[in-house]
Design a protein around this nucleic acid. Structure first.
Lengths: 216, 216
DNA sequence: TTATTCTAATAACAGTGTTAAGTGAAAGAA
DNA sequence: TTCTTTCACTTAACACTGTTATTAGAATAA
């Protein structure tokens, strides 16, 4: 074998090995995140513990620190999934129709739907650890309230189209956000608010909000 | 000294002693609650610890268990103060005027005022441990959502008076509750919502809600 | 004075997040 | 192949947490 053959082969082998190791690392990382998500959803925020996650995947507790800075970092990563899905669903709703009013209604319904379908995520994202919302992580450009900007944009378009009365885009968006967040919070906060009651409240709230902001 | 003199005196002494001890017990209990409230407001729910409370009042951690069942029981007691003040302020607002519309507005403003003035209490009462809201304690007749019934009653009167359009009292109340709760939540959730912005959002939200439910 | 009651403290258990030190196998260089 | 280095992982330990069982000691009752 000539030199020009063996040398590249060694290089290829080394590279392949490195890749393999890297992939295994990513796999374990994913395994941790999956186990964490599972346990978090099962047991709730307060009972969620790193040692339990470690036990569940068959590693020592300290191993987690090779893949995540600390407990918050892992939780943050778990919630990323929630934030991404949340943003996607709002975006889809915003693009579902061109009619400004229908657009706003679609966003509201998408918001409600996410919150009511993912109470575990929602609770941590917006009620228990709302700091996750604003504080961006180490390498991240912007925090995860991008969804809020979608709402503001659609509200602005609705005002320009004459569907909503003229006024502050920010205040209107805040008010609409408050309504849907309030409904989801009520639904999550206890058994007193059964699904049927929440459905009625959601329906009434959306109509109320639109009639209240609509051009008279 | 005759028998008829000494016997009642011993009785009186015994009774006084018992009373004194009872009072001292109540004083220590209050001291615990005060220290707990202080530390809870200073450090927040997550950092709040029994051992810190004990340290602060100069007793052993286990002494607290002579006065409270567990950590939740103490926290519950601390929050009682919050729930009572909350209910009182809503009640005052409801009695401040006879005009149905003004009444509703007053309640809404009172709600917002409580939440924005007592974010620490509000957060625990309605966001982090909303189970406190619904689950009544051992010796208690009803849970602490009595304030909700005030709202429902006033909403009912407003409908009858023709101020609000006819519809479900429960749904209307839920929708109004959702609005104010949403605003307070936004205000608490992060520095992104500065006081001025919250004020504008609160103003807009209340008007929106009333225009949205008002008789057209 | 003796016996009882009751408050408080000590010690301990089981659990938590987190850090520092060590171990053993795989990878790289000679 | 042999030696060295890198690196994933574990063990041990620290400083906490809530909570329970046991014990000491003082105030009260007999």
């Amino acid at each position: 074998m000539s030199e020009s053959d063996t040398k590249p082969r060694q290089l290829r082998l080394r590279q392949a090995s490195r890749q393999r190791r890297e992939q295994q690392k990513q796999e374990l990382r994913s395994e941790i995140v999956e186990a964490a998500a599972k346990l978090f959803l099962e047991q709730g925020y307060e009972r969620f513990s790193l040692r339990q996650v470690a036990e569940h995947i068959g590693y020592s507790p300290t191993t987690i620190y090779l893949y995540f800075e600390d407990k918050d970092d892992l939780l943050f990563t778990v919630l990323d999934d929630g934030f991404i899905r949340f943003g996607q669903q709002l975006l889809e709703a915003a693009q579902s129709t061109a009619d400004p009013k229908e657009r706003l209604l679609a966003i509201g319904r998408a918001y409600l739907n996410f919150g009511l379908s993912n109470p575990g995520y929602y609770q941590l994202m917006f009620m228990q650890r709302s700091d996750f919302l604003h504080n961006s992580r180490k390498g991240e450009a912007r925090p995860r309230i991008a969804a809020f900007e979608i709402l503001q944009q659609v509200v602005g378009e609705a005002i320009e189209a004459g569907v909503l009365r003229s006024g502050g885009v920010e205040s209107y968006s805040d008010a609409l956000w408050a309504v849907v967040h309030g409904i989801v919070s009520l639904a999550i906060s206890g058994p007193k608010f059964d699904p049927a009651r929440v459905q009625r409240a959601a329906q009434v709230s959306l109509l109320m909000a639109f009639d209240g902001l609509a051009q008279p």
